[in-house]
Computed example of a mutant assay.
Amino acid sequence: MPKPTNIYEEKNALGGPLEPCSLDPLTGFYRTGSCQVTAENKGVHAVCIYATKEFLEYSKKAGNDISTPMPQYNFPGVKPGESWCLSGPRFVQAVKDGMAPHIFIHSTHQAILELIDLETLKKCAIDLD
């Protein structure tokens, strides 16, 4: 795998350190457990979501099946209760459709702020004090 080209600082949407999203399943564009965004990450896999059955069903119907395992890509499929780095455009689509998932904002990369506002992210966050 090529070395990532960092064009963004490793900061979360609140400006703090980017925290890991999930190590089991191993998530992120580079499968590092982090929603890091680089020049190679064209899908901006920046949003650390908490997957629910409802969201996974919605996502599949919307054309982004993240729940079906794909062993050929070493992808186990996301299950309810797991965290996953979702692409920014898919998150924006879910917000527009009224199906926004809960997110971990401390694990969501600041690059998402180029696609959606901080207040919307905060409304979806389940890890704010």
Rank of each mutant, 00 (worst) to 15 (best):
N12K: 03
P89W: 00
V47K: 06
H109G: 08
L113R: 09
H45I: 01
I126S: 12
Y73L: 03
Y58P: 01
Y30F: 15
P4C: 09
N41V: 12
T27P: 05
E9L: 14
I105H: 02
H106G: 10
G88C: 08
P71A: 02
L113Y: 09
T32M: 08
M99R: 15
G98Q: 09
N12I: 02
E54S: 13
A125E: 10
G63D: 07
S59G: 01
I7V: 15
P4V: 06
K96Y: 02
G33S: 09
A100S: 13
Y58L: 03
K60H: 09
S87P: 04
K42M: 12
P17F: 02
S59E: 08
D24A: 14
R90S: 13
L23M: 15
I105W: 06
A125P: 08
N41I: 12
H106S: 14
M70T: 10
E57Q: 08
Y73M: 05
L113N: 08
K60S: 09
P80F: 00
E10Y: 11
E10I: 06
F104E: 11
G15F: 10
S67A: 12
G28C: 11
A111T: 10
R31H: 15
G77I: 06
N74L: 07
Y73Q: 06
L128W: 05
Q110V: 10
N64T: 10
P76W: 00
L56N: 03
I7P: 01
K61D: 14
F75A: 05
T38W: 02
Q72H: 10
S67N: 12
K79Q: 14
P76M: 00
V47R: 02
E82I: 04
C85E: 13
G15I: 06
C21Y: 03
